[in-house]
Simulated scan of single mutants.
Amino acid sequence: MVHIRNAREGEAELLSEIGLRAWQKAMMAMGESDALLDAARSAFVNFTRSTWLTITVIEFNGNIAGWAAREHLDETISDFWIDPAYTREGLGSALLEQIEKDIAEQGFAKAAMQTHSGNTEAISFFQKHGYAIHWLSIAYSPKLDRDVPSVGLTKALGAEGDVSYGPGF
C-alpha cells in the first residue's frame, strides 16, 4: 500500500540514508561515488535535519521508500530520491504527481528541477513525465565542494489539452 505524507522531524536520519543510497546509485553510473561520499553524507544529514518541513515522504507497505523536497516552497523540486530497493514500483511517479499537485495548488504554472547532467536515469524519468531540458550549466556546489555539470528541466502544469481556441475546437 502506498501512502504519501509530510516528513516528521525525527525521520531526518532515515531520510538522509535513503537519499544517500539513491545518490550513490546515480553517481556510481558516473564513476564518482567514492570521492564524494563523505561530502554527500554530510549534505544529506544537514539538509534533512534543517529542512524536514519541506519534505514529502512516500511509504510503501509501511516503510519509507523515498522522498522529495521543495526547499524554498516554490516551483522548484530541490530533491527527489527513491530508495534503490523500491525502484520500478511506480513510487517515483506517485510522489512526483503529488509534488506537482502541491506546486499547482500554490499557484505556480510550472514545476522545475535540476540534476547532474550524467544522471541519465533521472533525466529519462522526468522526461517520461513531461519535463523538458531547458538549460545546461556547470556551477560550484557548496554542498559537494566542487563544480557540478547540471541540466535544468521544467514542465508546464495545468489541465492537459487546455490549448483550445473556443468551444469544440
Rank of each mutant, 00 (worst) to 15 (best):
E121Q: 05
E121F: 03
A122D: 09
A122Y: 05
A122M: 06
I123E: 07
I123C: 08
S124Q: 07
S124W: 04
S124F: 06
F125R: 09
F125Y: 10
F125H: 11
F126V: 12
F126S: 10
F126P: 08
F126Y: 15
F126A: 09
Q127W: 04
Q127N: 11
K128E: 15
H129Q: 13
H129W: 13
G130P: 11
Y131R: 13
Y131W: 12
Y131P: 14
A132H: 12
I133F: 07
I133G: 07
I133R: 10
I133W: 07
H134Y: 14
H134T: 13
H134I: 15
W135G: 10
L136D: 07
L136C: 12
L136Y: 15
S137A: 13
I138L: 04
Y140V: 05
S141E: 11
S141W: 08
S141R: 03
S141L: 06
P142I: 02
P142V: 03
P142S: 07
L144V: 00
L144R: 00
L144E: 01
L144H: 01
R146M: 04
V148P: 00
P149N: 04
P149T: 02
P149I: 01
P149S: 11
P149R: 02
P149A: 08
P149K: 02
S150G: 03
V151P: 08
V151E: 08
V151S: 08
